[in-house]
Design a protein around this nucleic acid. Sequence first.
DNA 1: CCCTGTCAAGTCACG
DNA 2: CGTGACTTGACAGGG
Length: 336
Amino acid sequence: MKIGYPCINRSIGCRGDRTFRLASFTSERFHQTVRENLDCLQQMLIYNVNHEIRFFRISSNLIPFASHDVCDIPWQSIYGPQFREIGAYIRTNNIRISMHPGQFTVINSPDEEIVERSRRELLYHSEVLDLMELDRTAKIQIHIGGVYGDKETAKRRFIRNFNRLDEAIRKRLVIENDDVNFTVQDCLAIASELNIPVLFDIFHHKLLPDGRSVLQAMLDTAATWREIDGLPMIDYSSQADGEKSGKHSNEIERKDFSYFLRLLNVADFDVMLEIKDKEASALNAVNLAASEPRFIAAERQQIYRWIHQSGKTIERKGKQHDSTRANRRVKQSVTA
DNA sequence: CCCTGTCAAGTCACG
DNA sequence: CGTGACTTGACAGGG
C-alpha cells in the first residue's frame, strides 16, 4: 500500500498548479509558468520521498492550456529532458502516479465537439505521463460523464467513444464512480465491456450507493485491475464535520481512517487522500499506517459495522435539507 | 496592501 | 434562468 495526496503541497512554498488567464496568454507567460510548475513538481516529489509518501496525483494545470487552440508551443519537445528527468526520479523512487482531468472532460457527451475537446485534453494527460516514460501503472482517472436523461444510452455512448480514443489514452484510462450519476455498479458494467479498471471512490460510494458494502465494492473494483495496471487505486475522503453533506473534510479523521486501514488487510490498494490539508493528512496517514495497531477483538463489531455500512445511512444532499442532521448521522454511522 | 469580479472547458440540481 | 458544486480557489485589475 502507498499513500498519497493530490496536486499541491501547502508546506514547501511553491505550487505545481500555477496558471493564468487565457486573456494573458503569451509565450513568455506560458514558459514562465511551466518552468515554475515543473520545478515545483520536482520539489514536491522530493518532499514526498523524504516523508515516505509514494503516491502522488499530478495537477492537470501542470501545462496550462496544453490542449487549447491558443497553445501552439511544442512544450513536449522543449520540456522533454526535464520530463524524462522527473520520470527517472519517479521510477527510481518507486512512486505511483495518477492524474485526474477536470469535470470538463466528458467523453460520453452527445456533442461531438465536446468529445473531441475531451479527447485532446486526455491526450495532453497521456503525453505528460509518456514523456516521463512511466509504465501503464500511471493512470488517468475520469468520471463517466453526463446522463442526458437516459443513463443506459449515456453508458453505451461512453463505451463507443472510449473505443475511438487513442491507444495512448486507452491504456491509462480508469473510470471512477461519482457522487450523483454513475455508481460503482455502473462503472463495473462499463469496465467489464471495455476491460479497463475501476477506481473506487469510497466517499462517492457513500453518497451514491449501489447496494454494495464498502468491502464488497473494494473487492469488486480491485478485481478489475490486472497486473499490468498496477495495484488498484482508491480515493479516500470523509465527510466534513458540521458541513453540508458531500463536502470533503479538512483533515483526516483518525478513527475513520484506522477502520479503513483494516480493510486494506483484506484488499491492498494505493490510497489517494482527497482531503483539504493535503500533505499534512498524508503524513498523518503514513504514520497511522506505520503504527497500524493489532486487530483488537473488542473492535471487531465496530469494524464489521463500518465495513458493511452500505451508504444508506447518508442522505443525498438536496433531499435532506437539514444538513446538520445528515452530518450527525454520517458521524454516528462511522463512529457508532 | 486588500477587495472582488471573474475565470477554457460540462453537467446537474437547487432556488 | 442564474448559481454553486465538482479533483484543485486563484488570477488580475482596481482601489
